[in-house]
Amino acid sequence: MTMLLDWLLAPLAYGFMQRGLIASVLVGILCAVVGCYIVLRSMAFLGDALAHGILPGVAIAYLLQVNLTIGALAAGIAVALGIAFLSRPGTIREDTAIGILFAASLSLGVLLISTIRTYAVDLTHILFGNVLGVSPGDLWLIGGLACIVLTTIVLLYKEFLVLSFDPVHAAALRLPINLLRHLMLILLALTIVVSLQIVGVGLVAAMLVTPSATAYLVTRRLSHMMVLAAGLGAFSGIVGLYLSFYFNVASGAAVVLTATMLFVLVFLLAPRRGALWPRRRSRS
């Protein structure tokens, strides 16, 4: 018992581990909650595209010697609004707009990065994440943005629910549909920027999709799905970080693989969605 406790407490002796843990729990929760809408609206592609769309912003920020997070934030919001603009009703489909912007901004990002001679450490961290390098300032930023995004999602729960489930009814209720769509994209962009430091551009999509998809398998209401996904995201963040500490492996990858393990476990126990539940009910 004490051995387990020691094992759990030992990493917390380090400040960077404390900050890393808090950051990965925050990001785990945030990605999972926002990811519920991504999973339900089948927009996993969008999450990935936005993450890669952020690259040119980061590269430009690096070239201009300004804060990388600010560059990422600006690029994320620009790409989000670009997608919204290109996919206005009556023009091209949303996934086509995403595809176009995704390819363009990824190419621009690669092009800009290739001009940077010394392939800097900071930049690789943006690509693959570096949870152990979270400074107190970063932590405040992550915490603040996570608060803003989560509060918005809670406050606009019913509007986002009806918009994603039944856009025609949303129109009948005279909700400002375009405004809400843009807001959703911006919340997604903020989430991705916050997550970059923890899991990197390459793995953000996995953090958005995997815990939410796991929760979807066993819940029948959106609110329950969000709460469960948040729990799974936080749990993956913690377990992944301990794995990374003790086995000296990349933290972002460890977090994502933990989330994937959970998904596989639930998927196997509930082979079809909800398959587990009717059986349980009839037994009780």
């Binding site: 339900l40 629910l161 489930f165 009814h169 209720l173 209401r221 959106l222 329950h224 969605r273």
Partner: peptide, 29 residues
């Protein structure tokens, strides 16, 4: 929202995690 509309074909996502009571509550939004 004084006009309610029941379409010929509902264009909703049938796999969305909402219950019957949740859907009816949307009428109150």
């Amino acid at each position: 929202d004084c006009v309610a509309y029941v379409p010929q074909r509902e264009e909703v996502d049938w796999r969305f995690p909402v219950t019957v009571a949740d859907v009816v509550m949307m009428g109150r939004y």
